[in-house]
Every structure is written in C-alpha cells, then in structure tokens.
Lab assay of single mutants.
Amino acid sequence: AEIMKKTDFDKVASEYTKIGTISTTGEMSPLDAREDLIKKADEKGADVVVLTSGQTENKIHGTADIYKKK
C-alpha cells in the first residue's frame, strides 16, 4: 500500500472504496510508525493509506483510513 496525502487522495477518491481504519501506537520513530501503518494496510489488502491523525509526545499515535481500488 502507498501513503497518500489527503489533498492528493481527494483528486482520485472516486477510484477507491474505503475498507477500514488502522492505527499505530508506541515508542517508535515517525518512520517506524509509517512503516507499521503500511504493513497493517498491506495485511488488509489495501492499495492506499490516507493519514487522518498523528500525534507525538512521549509516544507516537497515528490513524489512517485504508482504501482498495474499485
């Protein structure tokens, strides 16, 4: 799966169907969080990951919607 910015995804959204939401939390780098989200998306058969939230304090927390091409 590839990560797309919401603004970029909005241009092609009609080509995809939302298949779920994924999240990651833990003591990790932003890059590790990104890789974890991609891994989870791949496991669910998603083609595209669109980040919906991200937070960093002591731990990273990120959520994303996942989509499959129609």
Rank of each mutant, 00 (worst) to 15 (best):
K44P: 01
Y67M: 01
M4A: 01
H61W: 15
D8C: 09
E15F: 13
I66S: 00
E27Q: 12
D10A: 09
T24F: 13
E27I: 12
K18Q: 07
H61F: 14
T63P: 07
K5R: 12
I22W: 04
K70M: 07
E57V: 09
T17W: 14
D36M: 11
V12T: 03
A64C: 05
I38G: 02
K59Q: 11
K39N: 06
T21R: 06
T25P: 08
G54H: 13
D65V: 06
S23D: 07
R34Q: 08
T7Q: 11
D65A: 04
K40Y: 05
G62T: 15
D47P: 01
S23C: 15
V49H: 01
S53M: 14
L31G: 10
T21H: 07
D8H: 05
I60Y: 12
E15V: 05
V12A: 03
T24I: 15
I22T: 01
K18H: 15
V48P: 00
A1G: 04
V12F: 05
G45P: 01
K68Y: 04
A64V: 07
S23H: 12
G62Q: 15
R34L: 15
T56W: 14
R34E: 09
K6I: 07
Y16T: 00
K70H: 06
E43I: 08
A33I: 10
N58G: 14
D32E: 13
K39G: 05
Y67K: 00
V49K: 00
D36F: 14
T25H: 12
V12Q: 03
Q55E: 13
T63I: 07
V48E: 01
S23P: 05
N58L: 12
I66M: 06
E35I: 14
S53W: 14
E57L: 12
T21A: 06
H61Y: 14
E27P: 13
K6A: 10
A41N: 00
I38A: 04
K44Y: 13
Q55S: 13
I60R: 09
L37C: 03
T25E: 13
D32H: 09
V48G: 01
T25D: 15
I66K: 02
T25M: 10
E43G: 05
K68E: 04
K68Q: 07
L51I: 14
Y16W: 03
T56K: 08
A41Y: 00
S29V: 05
K6R: 12
K68A: 05
E15L: 13
M28L: 12
G26R: 09
N58I: 10
K69S: 05
K18N: 05
V50Y: 03
G20H: 02
L37V: 03
T7H: 11
G62W: 15
Y67P: 01
A41F: 02
D65Q: 04
G20Y: 03
P30T: 12
A13E: 06
I3T: 03
Y67R: 00
V12H: 04
K6M: 09
S14C: 15
A33Y: 07
S14K: 11
A33F: 10
T52A: 09
D65M: 04
T25G: 11
G62K: 11
F9S: 01
L51D: 03
S29P: 06
K68H: 04
A41C: 03
K44L: 15
D32W: 08
T56S: 12
G62E: 11
A41L: 02
D42A: 13
G26W: 09
G20I: 01
M28K: 08
L37D: 00
T24H: 04
T7I: 11
T17Y: 15
T56I: 11
K70A: 06
G62I: 15
T17E: 10
A64S: 03
F9K: 00
L31C: 13
K18C: 10
T25Y: 11
D42C: 14
A41R: 01
L37I: 05
G20L: 02
M28Q: 08
M28C: 09
P30F: 13
Y16R: 00
L31K: 14
K5W: 15
I38Y: 03
I22P: 01
D36R: 06
I22V: 08
A46W: 00
I19P: 04
K11M: 08
S23L: 07
T52Y: 08
K44M: 15
E15S: 10
E43T: 06
T24Q: 05
S14T: 10
E35W: 13
E57Q: 10
T52S: 11
G20M: 04
D36W: 15
M28E: 06
V50N: 00
E35T: 12
T17F: 14
A46I: 03
S23M: 12
Q55K: 08
K68T: 05
S29F: 06
A1P: 10
V49P: 00
V12L: 06
T7G: 10
T21L: 04
D36Y: 14
A13K: 10
K59G: 13
T7S: 14
I3Q: 01
V49R: 02
A13G: 04
I19S: 02
I66F: 05
Q55C: 14
I19Q: 02
E27A: 13
D42G: 12
D10W: 08
K44A: 15
S29G: 09
T25W: 11
E27T: 12
I60M: 13
K70I: 11
D47S: 06
D47C: 09
D32Y: 07
M4L: 05
R34D: 04
I38N: 03
T24R: 03
D32A: 13
A46L: 01
T17D: 09
T63A: 07
A46R: 00
T52H: 13
K69Q: 04
I3E: 04
L37N: 01
V50F: 02
I38K: 08
I60Q: 12
P30W: 15
V50H: 00
A1H: 02
H61K: 12
G62C: 15
F9Q: 00
K11E: 06
L31M: 11
D65K: 03
S14P: 05
G54R: 08
S29R: 06
T17N: 08
T24C: 13
R34Y: 13
K6P: 08
T63Y: 09
I19V: 06
R34I: 15
E35V: 12
